[in-house]
């Protein structure tokens, strides 16, 4: 029985194995005794109350649970908490510093890249990982980098714009102009 739900449970039977893990989450070292089968997503959500990490499927397809582990995007619904032992994890709650939003968050707001908001945390972290590797991605590179994250509301077009917005801002360019350039190119050019 996982200690995350211990509040009301009977004592954990002796035959349930428990491991102690230490994971750095958003810069803070957190330790807990967990069952080996506990998913990282549940560790974050139930254990640390970081509910910005969502789970939308059980098959690693939707990407709503995407977090960064040692800087790489991973789907936390198919990472066990014990696999994150000793790693650095960043969730959506760790993107902004104080009142200052990450440029990806700003871009998502400015370009209306979210509607219901459920895919947004995972989508933004996947985008952040891309921009950390590639500060000046093309539209195709953005679309490919986000192809592990499903969105049912937006149709992705504004998400692409938001990421290009953030990339331009990170590079010190005018983000609005970058988006306008993309929009102009978009016309008549799917292929």
């Amino acid at each position: 029985m996982t200690s995350l739900f211990e509040e009301i449970s009977d004592p954990t039977p002796d035959d349930v194995p428990v491991n102690r893990v230490a994971i750095t989450v958003n810069g803070q070292k957190r330790t807990a005794d967990v069952e080996p089968r506990l998913l990282l997503a549940h560790f974050l959500r139930q254990g640390l109350k970081l509910t910005g990490t969502h789970t939308g499927c059980d098959t690693t397809n939707c990407g709503a649970c995407t977090v960064l582990m040692d800087g790489k995007p991973v789907k936390s619904c198919t990472v066990l908490a014990v696999q994150a032992e000793g790693r650095e994890v960043v969730t959506v709650e760790g993107m902004a510093s104080g009142s200052e939003l990450d440029s990806v968050q700003e871009g998502f707001k400015d370009e209306h890249a979210l509607q219901c908001g459920f895919c947004t945390p995972g989508m933004m972290l996947a985008a952040r990982a891309l921009l950390n590797e590639n500060p000046d991605p093309t539209e195709d590179e953005v679309r490919f980098a986000l192809s592990g994250n499903l969105c049912r509301c937006t149709g992705y077009q504004n998400i692409v714009k938001a990421v290009l917005w953030a990339a331009a801002k990170d590079r010190g360019e005018d983000p609005t102009q970058a988006v306008e350039k993309y929009t102009a190119k978009q016309k008549g050019a799917n292929q």
């Binding site: 509910t51 910005g52 959506v92 939003l101 998502f108 908001g117 947004t120």
Partner: peptide, 9 residues
Amino acid sequence: DNRFLRGKG
């Protein structure tokens, strides 16, 4: 968006 962007939905 202010709450969704921060994971505070």
